[in-house]
């Protein structure tokens, strides 16, 4: 038996909007730790890792570890039927082939339940060890979204370079080139507006902008985004999900042959 009650149901709605374009079908894993998902996009270039910790739910009951295969497009259709202020409860029976999403309006005068069919998904779980990154950039998520959108009108690939001067996002295409440099800026009124660049070693890596743009669908979840870069590793683009967890996107770099 599984029963997870999330008072801030809009978080789950936003989470789905953040991953449904990248991944079609995925297993949601439920354990005493929390509600989680790890999935790759169909071309195995990007990976998304979601964790919503059990403490973030008002009520969290998960009698035994459960993996529920869901079509994210269908799940998104159902969650779109929940109001932004609704409380969402996820319910499933052990060994059942459906999951129920219950939506309660804040005033309790409307209660809806939507039952969705589960599916069997052969999921390949990757072990992702903790890593020391050469450079970590924290910036407003809206700024990162703007940069990815702007650069993708010029080129297909972004080169992200971190030096002591700052972080540079560059692209090139048929019509020309573009370079956007951000410098560290911590003298801001609101901490979420800060640009913080932690450079242990300079790094420069190339990535497909198409995926970066897809990751920025998570912008409504968090005011800030953290970009972790190492020359030997995929970039990690992380958005916090309120106080309860995160969405991390991993993207393999492009290399010059």
């Amino acid at each position: 038996m599984l029963e997870l009650r999330l008072v801030q149901g809009s978080l789950l709605k936003k989470v789905l909007e953040s991953i449904k374009d990248l991944v079609n079908d995925a297993n949601f894993d439920c354990s005493s730790t929390g509600f989680s998902l790890q999935a790759m996009d169909s071309s195995h270039v990007a990976l998304v890792s979601l964790l919503l910790r059990s403490e973030g739910f008002e009520h969290y009951r998960c009698d035994r570890n459960l993996s529920m295969g869901m079509n994210l497009g269908n799940m998104s259709k159902m969650l779109k039927c929940a109001g932004n202020d609704d409380i969402i409860t996820i319910k499933a029976d052990d060994g059942g082939d459906t999951v129920t999403f219950m939506f309660e309006s804040p005033t309790q005068d409307k209660i809806a339940d939507f039952e969705m069919k589960l599916m069997d998904i052969d999921s390949e779980h990757l072990g992702i060890p903790d890593a020391e990154y050469h450079s970590i950039v924290r910036m407003p998520s809206s700024e990162f979204q703007r940069i990815c959108k702007d650069l993708s009108t010029i080129g297909d690939t972004v080169v992200i370079s971190v030096t002591k001067e700052g972080v540079k996002f560059s692209t090139a295409g048929d019509i020309g080139t573009a370079n956007i440099v951000l410098r560290q800026n911590t003298t801001v009124d609101k901490p979420e507006d800060a640009i913080v660049i932690e450079m242990n070693e300079p790094v420069s890596l190339s990535f497909a902008l198409r995926y970066m743009n897809s990751f920025t669908k998570a912008t409504p979840l968090s005011d800030t985004v953290t970009i972790s870069l190492s020359s030997e590793l995929p970039v990690v683009v992380e958005y916090k999900v309120a106080e309860m967890g995160y969405i991390r996107y991993y993207l393999a770099p492009k290399i010059e042959e």
């Binding site: 790759m40 071309s43 195995h44 270039v45 990007a46 990976l47 390949e124 779980h125 990757l126 072990g127 992702i128 060890p129 690939t157 190339s206 497909a208 030997e232 590793l233 995929p234 991993y250 393999a252 770099p253 492009k254 290399i255 010059e256 042959e257």
Partner: peptide, 14 residues
Amino acid sequence: KETQLRIEAFYSFS
């Protein structure tokens, strides 16, 4: 010429 690497090149299946 640029080559797009895949995630499996970096992490192994657990």
